[in-house]
């Protein structure tokens, strides 16, 4: 299968990391897709940017650390990670030290980004 034949998938992440199991579910989908060498990108939108807060310590909850798991994305060759700049600014998140490198995009650019993909999966 050539790269051109592959569908491009955008995973839109809109919820905080530990308030529900959605963050874990989105990571499962992303890593499974990566294992099958699918063409996948992530967009952290709205409250989803809360997953990018550095130095999360989830062990007190007995839950997997979403931040540290996100840090492994480059090892799965997932390098397209976009972030809603307005939401990151609203929560004063320092993206220069977030678990994974991101590309900031403005609210006005988000719609265009979404239309560049064949499928959108929302979490």
């Amino acid at each position: 299968m050539t790269t051109r034949d592959k569908k491009r998938m955008l995973v839109v992440i809109r919820h905080s990391p530990y308030g529900s199991s959605l963050a874990k579910a989105s990571l499962d989908v992303v890593l499974a897709a990566a294992a099958f060498e699918q063409n996948i990108a992530l967009l952290f939108l709205g409250d989803g940017v809360l997953q990018l807060i550095p130095r999360q310590e989830s062990s007190a909850l007995g839950k997997k650390n979403i931040g540290r798991q996100l840090a492994s994305l480059p090892l799965y060759d997932i390098d397209s990670v976009y972030v809603d700049a307005e939401a990151a600014a609203r929560y004063n998140i320092d993206l220069t030290i977030s678990p994974v490198d991101t590309q900031s995009i403005s609210t006005g650019e988000i719609h265009q980004l979404m239309t560049e993909f064949d499928h959108i999966l929302g979490f």
Binding site: R14, L45, G46, D47, T107, I110, H111, M114
Partner: peptide, 15 residues
């Protein structure tokens, strides 16, 4: 809800 606000920020003409 945040979901409502996020949706309206993204949705536009032709959607």
């Amino acid at each position: 809800s945040p979901a409502f606000n996020d949706c309206l920020k993204i949705a536009r003409t032709h959607d």
